[in-house]
Design a protein around this nucleic acid. Sequence first.
DNA 1: CGTCTTGTGTCTTATACAAGACCATGCGAG
DNA 2: CTCGCATGGTCTTGTATAAGACACAAGACG
Lengths: 241, 241
Amino acid sequence: MRRPDARPLYVQVEAILNDRIVSGSWKSGQAIPAEPELAAELGVSAGTLRRALARLEQRHLIERRQGRGTYVAQQTSQQALGQFFRVRNLAGRPVDPETVITAVTTSPASEEEARRLRLAPGEEVHRIDRSRVFEGEPRIAERISLPAAFFPNLTLPLAPKQLGTEIYVHYRNAHGIIVVQAEENLSATAATEADAAILGCPVGTPLLLIERVTFDAAGRPVELRVSRLDTRAHRYAVEIA
Amino acid sequence: MRRPDARPLYVQVEAILNDRIVSGSWKSGQAIPAEPELAAELGVSAGTLRRALARLEQRHLIERRQGRGTYVAQQTSQQALGQFFRVRNLAGRPVDPETVITAVTTSPASEEEARRLRLAPGEEVHRIDRSRVFEGEPRIAERISLPAAFFPNLTLPLAPKQLGTEIYVHYRNAHGIIVVQAEENLSATAATEADAAILGCPVGTPLLLIERVTFDAAGRPVELRVSRLDTRAHRYAVEIA
DNA sequence: CGTCTTGTGTCTTATACAAGACCATGCGAG
DNA sequence: CTCGCATGGTCTTGTATAAGACACAAGACG
């Protein structure tokens, strides 16, 4: 009975604010109340509130600007690209990808998909097959698997243009799913005939195989993405700090 | 004249403490003065000092433990392994690598080495060729290039055992170089005959090619490392937050 | 078009108490 | 007497509060 919640107060406040964003009671791009006001409402000191806000900012859930206010982060395609897209050209500069969607299907999850997305056996997933084009050349062939339960009516608004630009923006705007974290496993593989046809490379060309699981702000896995990157003219960049 | 130093005070304090660690006036593993004492010496408030210490801790330059004190981080092999070694087995667990050194040479830097390590043309580098063995099987073939200017007498203490365990520990203990950051570029390549001989795989097997440049606490590049990972039984794991 | 006012986040200081770690003291069992 | 160990004192970092000076942005006003 001593400790109703053992976590530090600033962590509890962070969780409360996190919920408000995830639940949508604070909309994307909207300004949130000023610090003194919010601190008073929550019954904590300004310092404690600031500590919670700093953590939310580090997780890219809010943006703060001195003199202006604090805003719920918008999943702009620029921001999502910088945060999650690690492909660079040989000069080390980010590339600006175009997207071509080739197929969208829905069917029960494979064993692999169920495991990675923590789905029950038999649950359905949507699958999006697409290729990504850099400077006129197709360089990535990928398949995206989404739990159908999280993405109802995915097929309806699926104009290729919609999903092309940046799919995480679409997740957020159309389905309210805020992507904050991803785990990737990288390996090398040889191009199959299907890969070769998409990427325009010889069969057997070494490709960088990227298996990504993406998580939302509540920690649920919401996307499995398997990409095959042709590294003849591009690299996957990692910073370790 | 208005602003002798435009940076916030806590950043200036961070820089001062950073210098003390880099210059060696605070030794590795040693306890640093308690907060009130240090704050008084630097002429800042406890809060400001704490903010600087928090940043140093985030960069893994110090370790703080409630009740005990604050210590200059030791580059233990465990810590370095967790921080910089991203290879996992197929179950997702970290592997415990052994190391076999095959050659150590010194000669003028190649064009590539000079560019990545920011060396003048003609400057010398040491090169260490080694392989890394997981669970009895050689899985990585790599070459490490070090600016000779930063690593005098490298060849003398170069008992394979010394460099085997974790080379960053050796850098720190023998040369005072504190490694804090790395940039990696990943691509896929086919195993050459030399790779095949080391890794015991067929020529042409797709390998994960990892090009890493490592930086010290002063931001200088101190190591270029080119690794070829056999991904038949292992993966390279990345977390994006 | 500049200046002022107002509202916002940022920095710095100060104080108090909580919690973890360590150590010396001293009591009690053997 | 000696050993073992509980206990409390004291040092450490961690958490929470409060208050004021400052910097930046935007709109109102002259």
